Amino acid sequence: MNEWQVTTVLSQFRHSTSARSLRLGLAEPFHGLPGQHIDIRLTAEDGYSTARTYSLSDVRETRTIEVTIERADDGEVSPYLVDVVEVGEPLEVTRAHGGWFTWDERDPRPVQLIAGGSGLAPLMAMIRSREVSAPMVPFGLVYSLRSPDRVLFADELRQLMHRGRMPVHLAHTREAPADDPRPAGRLGGGELAEITMSPDRDPTVFICGPNGFVEQCAAAMVAAGHQPGRIRTERFG
Rank of each mutant, 00 (worst) to 15 (best):
S57V: 04
F30E: 04
S55I: 07
R23Y: 06
Y54S: 01
L26Y: 10
E66L: 00
A44Q: 09
D58K: 06
P29W: 09
A44V: 02
R63G: 07
L22Y: 10
R41A: 11
L42A: 11
H31I: 08
I65C: 04
Q36R: 11
R63A: 10
E28D: 12
G35Y: 12
H31G: 09
G25Y: 08
F30A: 03
T62C: 03
T53Y: 00
T68Y: 01
R60T: 15
E66G: 01
D46A: 07
E45L: 08
R60M: 06
E28G: 03
D39I: 01
D58Y: 04
Y48E: 05
L42R: 14
H37C: 13
T68M: 00
R41W: 01
P34Y: 12
T62S: 08
G32K: 11
R60P: 08
E61V: 04
P29D: 11
Q36S: 09
I65H: 02
A51Y: 00
I40V: 15
T43N: 03
D46S: 09
L33P: 07
Q36W: 13
P29A: 15
P34E: 07
Q36A: 10
I65D: 00
E45G: 06
G32M: 08
G32T: 09
R41E: 04
R60S: 13
L24D: 07
E28I: 13
L33M: 12
T68C: 04
R23E: 14
R63E: 11
L22F: 10
I40T: 13
T50V: 15
T64M: 01
H37G: 03
T68R: 00
R52P: 03
R23W: 14
D46C: 06
R23F: 07
T62E: 12
L22R: 11
H37Q: 10
E45Q: 14
R63W: 05
E61T: 14
H37T: 05
E45N: 11
H31R: 15
T43W: 02
I40M: 13
I40A: 15
G25C: 05
V59F: 04
V59W: 04
D39V: 01
R41H: 02
R41N: 01
S57F: 07
R41M: 15
D46F: 08
A44D: 14
V67R: 00
D46L: 06
G47C: 09
T50Q: 09
E66N: 02
T43D: 02
A27F: 02
Q36G: 10
G32H: 12
Y54T: 03
S57R: 09
G35H: 13
G25S: 12
V59Y: 08
T43K: 12
L22G: 06
S55T: 08
V59T: 15
S49V: 03
R60N: 14
S57K: 08
L33H: 14
L42P: 13
